[in-house]
Amino acid sequence: MMYIRASIFFLGVLATLFLGWAGLTMIPGLQIREIKPASALKPYKDQQLRGRAIYIREGCIYCHSQQTRPEGFGADQKRGWGRPSVPGDYVYDKPHLLGTMRTGPDLFNIAARQPSEDWHLIHLYDPRATSPGSIMPPYPWLFKEDEVFSKEVYAAKGERVVPVPEEFAPEGKVIIATHEALDLVAYLVSLNHTYSIEQKVNNNE
């Protein structure tokens, strides 16, 4: 009797877990698989993928989401953050970066809003240089300093000068973007999912 009861108990325990798992991940997984990527959605290029890896490494996800909500659910639409995102927008994302926090704005369509590479570079070097009052951390290790030369010298060295406003730059130095900074920015300026989607996908509302 005792063994029967014990084994029933364990079965029940396993059942509840598996039911939840099947219901919440496998079935939607099968359903979502039917959805093709939107034709305008391109796979990431190598540089963008490297930038994405830096986005993951520096934990941007803890302050930025990448999902836009429909009209009637928050102000995403009114703020012009782009049409509601759909599963087809994420087919190339691994790991996913949907995020659950908006200490900073949603970045799913940041490229449509802010296509300027220089802006992003300055912002990453010191967020307060572009956005007074920001609490975003600076990422100085994505940049290096160099002496002040003429433009041609940097061009010859293959260095990208970041036009950091004077009061935010170290005195007598020029800020140069490293490859990592350029990769990250390449990723950011690729984040544009404002293309129109042809099929109506089962989404909220």
Partner: peptide, 19 residues
Amino acid sequence: LILVALLGGAMAMFAFLWA
């Protein structure tokens, strides 16, 4: 896995109800 999950789940639920 999903088959196992559903099968095991269904079986266990019946066992539980019976219990």
